[in-house]
Design a protein around this nucleic acid. Structure first.
Lengths: 238, 238
DNA sequence: GCAACACTACGGGATACCCCTAATAGCAAT
DNA sequence: ATTGCTATTAGGGGTATCCCGTAGTGTTGC
């Protein structure tokens, strides 16, 4: 069992192409007896979702066309969780139905599991697997494979993040010491005048650091810049 | 093997007392043949550091007295990593020596492994294990146990965070729909005038909602209010 | 019924923020 | 050495925001 896992993980440490990730997902299904698997990563700041899956093409098209990632409860729930999320425990609300309502038509089941992983920059990776079988069989399968799935998710996300395919969009901008300092003081409620006094510089200068911080963070206002800096974990909320 | 793990994890889903976490760590060592284990977490909001370890008391005293957590390379390296970090791969720099220089005197080894886990609030949990044995034995041990350690780390961190987040949730102020709405638009860079147009209300009214939101959040400025709202997960960074 | 609160709206004075320009210092490049 | 980039410093001017009020309507709860 451990050998199988090692074999799979070794695959992920090779070249970081999209094809490689797809074959990794395929092999994962094959080795662990799942129907389908997917990996998705989302930016905590922009909320954009990118990923790979071996779902039927028709479903992928449908999913993308309907922008289902915006309401998909498997994504939103596991994006807020530390531990793996079993889809059978999700509440059957409106958003659940809007995603799984037509899923059966595409050969998919709502019997799935999502393993969330997070990196140091607030980046989130979601490894999901599905299998249509009896409830008892599903319980046994997940119990046996969950720790391997956890490992696989960690290594897959690590690999994806180390490649610059997706990480560039997610990587946090590098702020100067002053910029970070000014943002942090701002976040805890100080005015520019206060900060100028604290740092023994003019409040004009404080504003310049603020401006370049805004530009680097692609923010329209100081408030948005502070929000993003918190999202990127560059500073802490006051 | 899976049964052992289940047994251990069940322990962590009971009451969340410090004693419980300590026995969890002890049992982890016992079941997986490690000498020592530790768990540490840092909350990005409060900045507080929390940890449990079954190291010798003398070492814990020494570690705390010297504030070694500030330079500990096992912490800093794994706090920047997604995947587990084997201490034998750490660079033998100044900070490494300053921690492990005297570790041997206390019966500790530099043959260890740290598994990092992250939650949705930027919280980091570090589960570390050590064992002094031959290099070959160490390699085999870590290869066999790493996926169980990963699982244990996830569940331990999940348990700790649920107890911590619970108390945080009690302190979370309840904002009205309008207040939340106004804060969210502000966080994504809209001005009060913009928001007034979007919500079809006067920009004066927007400011009133902003004011009461600031008061409820105990914030000195709108920026701090937005930062706290993000920290409380009331709104999302723009 | 009445108290408490949410949502709505306006005004005026003080202030902080935002944009422009601009200088100096350091550091990498070649 | 000169060019180029970034970090840091700073002033002037326009405007949006903040803060202090007041005040009417509608909903919720005792």
């Amino acid at each position: 069992m451990a050998d199988e896992l090692t074999k799979i993980i070794d695959l992920s440490t090779q070249s970081n192409t999209s094809d490689n990730y797809l074959t990794f997902i395929d092999q994962l299904c094959e080795h662990m007896d799942f129907d389908f698997a997917s990996y998705a990563t989302m930016s905590p700041v922009t909320g954009s979702v990118l990923g790979y899956a071996n779902y039927p093409d028709e479903w992928k098209m449908h999913y993308m066309r309907m922008n289902l990632h915006r309401v998909d409860p498997t994504i939103h729930q596991s994006a807020r969780s530390i531990a793996p999320v079993d889809w059978t425990r999700l509440s059957r609300g409106e958003s659940f139905n809007s995603v799984f309502y037509r899923a059966n038509d595409f050969g998919l089941t709502d019997q799935g599991l999502t393993v969330p992983v997070r990196g140091p920059f607030g980046d989130v990776g979601l490894l999901s697997v599905t299998r249509s079988c009896s409830e008892r069989e599903w319980k046994l399968l997940t119990r046996d494979k969950i720790s391997e799935l956890q490992m696989a998710a960690v290594h897959l996300h690590d690999s994806v993040m180390q490649s610059d395919v997706l990480s560039r969009a997610l990587r946090r901008p590098s702020l100067s010491a002053r910029e970070t300092e000014v943002l942090q003081w701002t976040a805890i409620g100080k005015t520019q005048q206060d900060i100028g006094d604290i740092l023994s510089i003019s409040h004009r200068t404080v504003e310049v650091h603020m401006r370049s911080a805004r530009e680097k963070l692609g923010a329209l206002t100081t408030i948005q810049a502070v929000g993003r800096a918190i999202g990127y974990q560059i500073i802490y909320p006051g």
